[in-house]
Design a protein around this nucleic acid. Sequence first.
DNA 1: CGATTCTTTGAAAACAGTCAATCTGTGTGG
DNA 2: CCACACAGATTGACTGTTTTCAAAGAATCG
Lengths: 189, 189
Amino acid sequence: MFEILKKRMEEIMCISVEDMQGLKDIHQTKKVRKGQILLSEGQVCTLTYYIVKGCLRVYRIDQNGEEHVLKFGIENWWINDGESFSTKEPSKSYIQALEDSDLILFEESHFSRLIPSAPSLQKFVEEKTTRSFIASTERIYEQMSLSAETRYNNFIKKYPNIFNRVPLHMIASYLGVSKKTLSRIRSKV
Amino acid sequence: MFEILKKRMEEIMCISVEDMQGLKDIHQTKKVRKGQILLSEGQVCTLTYYIVKGCLRVYRIDQNGEEHVLKFGIENWWINDGESFSTKEPSKSYIQALEDSDLILFEESHFSRLIPSAPSLQKFVEEKTTRSFIASTERIYEQMSLSAETRYNNFIKKYPNIFNRVPLHMIASYLGVSKKTLSRIRSKV
DNA sequence: CGATTCTTTGAAAACAGTCAATCTGTGTGG
DNA sequence: CCACACAGATTGACTGTTTTCAAAGAATCG
């Protein structure tokens, strides 16, 4: 499985042979079944996942027991709870497999020991963080400036491979509307 | 003015003498008047601002001509358009002074030349990026899980010094509601 | 003081949410 | 292979909230 990760990373950025070997040395693999919870609220997120195959989501449960989907992930995406992972505080989120999935995983402790001596990986991580931050800002802006209908249509265009694999009520949650509203939007085509 | 920045940075993190000197060597200062625009849509954001005194906002204008406030900044905050600053693409945002303000500014080119040779600064910037990302995630979650009223009350608690200096219609915009709705929330105390 | 900007308000209309019931499709076990 | 259970999606009636638009009151500033 690591070969897949390697290939995809090298499509994006030059990684030195040594750095890639270092990464390979600390990687682990895991297969999970649909529905399985990989991280629960209250646990510290000590792992970061690379999705070789499958689909995951990150979500939270509010005071009223409502679920809110913060993020989906599919093939070639990295998933963790960034907050807990970097602060080492207990997570407020859950991570769950939405399909049977093949994952590569890295322990935070191994990872942060490797990075300082692996400049090309460091650069990779930095860029990923920057891109995540830009994407968050974009999502905030879309939420405040676009109608639910436009957000839905953008979502389909941007993530067709998530759209056709994930229950609609989770997409509604991700978009910040009730499933009723999403249903209305969909029916008015 | 640089002394203020220095003192505040050292409260948060150890910065080596050389790194701090390097930062001092590239800093510039600027005074701006209330209302002044520091960055416009379409320009590349080549500067990052540290606010010594005053208040700024980052906002965008959508297809309908509506303004949406992405961020406020007051004393001791750093402000730029992160997306344009890191990608060097034209910005989608405006940065505006909401009060007469004293700023310290850094050119991206100077900054990125300094950073690789200034490890304590690099660490500072990394932490700042991580914190920004966490804050964005938190804002997304609050937007999807909390009522406008709760978001408003949280805002007052979290940023009292922004709340009492900034027009309400901008706070409404930041919170993602109309000024009418904010007015209603406020009147029902 | 006059001009500008900001805030509140009213009435109507558009929109989104709740709840409960129904419909659909999938998959599992007998 | 069928029946049943189950998760997901839609629907209807109702309720409640938010926006829109315009106007009027405050507050601020030169």
